[in-house]
Nucleic acid binder design. Sequence first.
DNA 1: ATGCCCATTTGCAATGGA
Length: 265
Amino acid sequence: MKIATFNINGIKARICALTDWLVEARPDVAVLQEIKAQDTAFPAEHFQDLGYHVETHGQKSFNGVALLSRLPLEDVTRGLPGDAADEQARFLTARVMGDRPVTVCGLYLPNGNPAPGPKYDYKLAWMARLETYLKTRLAEEEPLVVCGDYNIIPQAEDAARPDAWRADALFLPPSRAAWRRIVHLGLTDAFRARHPHMPPHPGPEHYSFWDYQAGAWNRNDGIRIDHLLLSPQAADLLQDCQIDSAIRGRDKPSDHVPVWIDLAA
DNA sequence: ATGCCCATTTGCAATGGA
């Protein structure tokens, strides 16, 4: 079962690039972030024609997540528990009914800039809610994939220029501590599990985001902020994890690229 | 130290992104 996470930065602007990649990469499940559209504005029929079941959790203009799956989906839930007043569309889960069912949580974690400030407080509170939620889900002891745009640079090696991010919400110590609390619940960072050693001059296949500004892609000034975290039962099924960096160089790209895993499920 | 670029909006300047 091939599961990919991809921040598309707007479904309206990315319909062509996303379709091209889906046809080439043929993921069984595509977990999308920043659809930037309400559910009714999402072109579900277009993806159904490509063979995908479609579930969305959108809002106008900003945020919004979606699941595309060639396999049937069950038990779809929308929104991250823990704050009834939170109206931002950033979390969507479903059970993917393959030979062995896999629960997928798709998330778009808050950016948090500027830090400090209320946006940073929201980010850290959101991560605490995620930690609480995942404690419960991990107790099920089933294959679980928690993936999406985490807006977290886990370690210095996950940035081409780590010093440029020292004061940024993506790399500040409290952000990384919250990440580690989540990972230490018993989750495996799929990319780092498959690529434990970074070469001295990492190529673009080690990063998942390049800013549109200042020629970041051409200089490979990237960061790795899109992640797939696996429960022990999912980690046992892990066959591969790769980043489809090349599509960042195409016409009308998102500033993120897909990261995918292959599970023996 | 700041902007660079891109997507969106009951839109043409402002906001959010990272």
